[in-house]
Computed example of a mutant assay.
Amino acid sequence: MSAPADVITTLPHDLSPLRRGPVMVASDGAPETNDALFSAARLAGSALGAPIEVIGVCEPITGVAGGMDVLPVPAELDESRRVTMLSDLRRSVSIAASGDPQWPIHVVVGSPSRLLAQEAADRDAALMVMGIGRHNPLDRLFGTETTLATLRESRVPVLAVGAHFPATPVHAVVGLDFSAASVRAAQLAMQMLTTGGRLTLVHVRPRFEHPSSDWQTWDAEYGRTLPPLFVQVRRLLNAPTEITVDTVTVRGDPAPALLAFAQQARADLVAVGTQRHTLLERLIVGSVATRVLRTARCGVLAVPQI
């Protein structure tokens, strides 16, 4: 049986500055999602003091089977589709209420998740803004599954927003497991809050149902470690006076308990840190981040371990 000190990851000693590259917006030019994406990008760019760039990824058309052979698709066709997407994005940025025609726009051809991660790395991006496409059963190009796949590939934080993400978030809920990634998620979420906003740090304790004295002792010890850890996180965050920071501890399975709290609190944003230690964890990006991204009714911020 592990001690609480082994269960709760050691906190960082300080919070070094976040990446200073641009905020990148991943869009396919679809008008029904662009207003929210561009608004979220403007919010993040202002909060981080970062420029904004728009990127589209045009998936190549696969070859067509012809008898026993696969007929290659002419390269000109993919290039034509790339140029069309670039034109759509330029028009979308130009007409969107929250867009800025001066934002640089790039469109590349290839695998969306891999290329988005690579483009973000090449630009040392501060954040990637993407859509949550759960309302479409086919999950549009830049929907939830592509967002998850990008997070699996990328070391850059991802902000996933739906069509109703507010331009000025008031309440952010952070799933805090006291890892460096979760503390950085709290830091980034705090920066996106409007003046007078609230940041709630939620730690989900393991469900305790065992009657043995050993388990009761372990659970009591676990509980005693939490207050000083919360104090240390608040010190690290050094929140401005206009932001209220509160702490909450709940019991249960991490993702459902966090989502239930966020829904009850009517949060605008749920933030989580993600860990990558083993090959399996790199593939699934952690069950908590995956479940939150797939089922949250508000915006989701996922911050990978640096």
Rank of each mutant, 00 (worst) to 15 (best):
M1S: 15
V7M: 07
T9R: 14
S16D: 10
R19D: 04
G21C: 05
M24T: 11
A26T: 13
D28E: 04
G29Y: 01
P31T: 09
E32H: 13
T33Q: 13
N34L: 10
L37P: 00
L37G: 06
R42Y: 07
L43S: 10
G45N: 06
A47N: 06
A47Q: 11
L48S: 09
L48C: 12
A50P: 12
I52T: 15
C58F: 12
C58R: 15
T62Q: 14
V73F: 10
D78S: 11
E79P: 00
R81I: 14
V83Y: 13
S87H: 10
L89F: 07
L89C: 02
R91T: 15
S94T: 14
A96H: 13
Q102H: 00
H106S: 15
V107K: 11
L116V: 02
L116D: 08
A117S: 05
A117P: 10
E119R: 15
A120F: 10
A120C: 05
R123D: 02
D124V: 05
A125D: 03
L127Y: 06
I132K: 15
R140V: 12
T147C: 05
T147W: 10
E153D: 13
P157M: 06
L159M: 04
V161S: 06
A163C: 02
A163D: 09
A163K: 12
F165E: 01
P166N: 02
P169W: 13
H171Q: 05
V173Q: 09
V173H: 01
L176H: 03
S179Q: 00
A180H: 12
A180S: 15
V183S: 05
R184G: 00
A186I: 08
Q191C: 12
T195R: 14
R198K: 12
L199G: 03
T200C: 10
H203P: 01
V204L: 07
R205N: 10
F208G: 05
P211A: 00
P211Q: 05
W218T: 09
A220M: 09
A220R: 09
E221L: 08
R224G: 01
Q232V: 00
Q232M: 04
L236G: 04
N238G: 11
A239Y: 14
V245S: 11
T249S: 01
V250P: 02
V250S: 06
R251I: 06
R251T: 13
R251L: 09
P254R: 00
P254Y: 04
A257Y: 02
A260P: 00
F261Y: 12
F261Q: 01
Q264M: 11
R266Q: 11
V270F: 06
A271C: 11
T274H: 06
H277M: 09
E281R: 10
E281V: 13
L283M: 06
L283G: 04
I284D: 15
I284K: 04
G286W: 13
V288K: 01
A289D: 03
T290M: 03
R291V: 04
R291C: 07
R291N: 15
L293S: 03
R294M: 01
G299Q: 02
V300L: 03
L301T: 01
